Computed example of a mutant assay.
Amino acid sequence: MKKSQIVVIKGTKEGISLHLDDHCSFDELLKELDEKLSESSISVDDRPLISVTIKLGNRYLTLEQEGTIKDLVRQKRNLVVESLVSNVITKEEAEQKKAENEIVSVAKVIRSGQILEVPGDLLLIGDVNPGGTVRAGGNIFILGALKGIAHAGFNGNDEAIIAASVMKPSQLRISSCINRAPDHYLENEKREMECAFIDASDQIIIDRLQVLSHLRPNLTRLEGGR
């Protein structure tokens, strides 16, 4: 019976990928990885840096083990580790991902000096008064007037949006982009519900809510009551 390979090296458009067996011991894995990389022709002095993706399968590594593998690969001179991909995550990581994908509903008025922050999407039923701040790792939906500060996608999500029944913010932030609101709103002006998003020029744009179906087609998670 043919013995399965512990380390399989495959070429990709971006560089190479290392497929590591998830059944053997960690010491066995390190030994064969070192041997395979030493024997391979990919480590040549006059070649440019090569991006490496390490695929771990169902193996979970501690931070120390990750560092050991990265150091081993980096010793091969022209290899640069871009990412480690595993099918396994810790309970804490799973809970964090769940929180980041949840919609938190809050019914209250955010007054001056108050800060409301959630890890995922925020649905606020109420106003954000001047001096108040709402922050979300995902999108922000406000069924009320936004007159304070709103910061969506604070973990670096450029696809996040901010929507409000009345869009009169003192400041808008999406990911690392910042934009002050225009000063042309009339106090008694009747307006549609609006949204803010980052456009192709990396600028925050305010537009009608209807444009989101084209700009962010993946925004709707459930359709048809499913």
Rank of each mutant, 00 (worst) to 15 (best):
M1H: 09
G113P: 04
K108Y: 01
S25T: 12
L49D: 11
L56Q: 06
K10A: 15
I6V: 13
T12W: 01
G225E: 02
I142T: 02
I115Q: 05
H184E: 11
S83K: 15
S38W: 02
G224V: 08
D158E: 10
E95F: 05
L49T: 10
R216M: 10
Q75V: 06
S105P: 13
N188M: 06
I42K: 04
K76Q: 13
G131C: 08
V104A: 14
K97Y: 10
A196M: 04
Q171Y: 01
V88W: 04
V109Y: 05
G225T: 01
N129Y: 10
A107G: 06
K2H: 12
A136F: 04
D158V: 12
C195G: 05
D34H: 12
C177D: 06
Q210E: 13
D22A: 13
S112M: 05
R173H: 10
D158G: 00
S83Q: 07
E223L: 11
N179H: 11
T12A: 09
V8H: 06
L122V: 02
L186W: 05
Q75F: 04
E189A: 14
D202N: 10
E93N: 06
I142G: 03
R226T: 06
S51C: 07
R173T: 08
S38M: 10
T90D: 07
I69H: 00
S40F: 00
Y60W: 11
K36C: 09
A160L: 03
I206T: 07
I140S: 04
R191M: 13
H214N: 15
S175I: 04
R111P: 06
G138N: 10
I9H: 02
P119E: 08
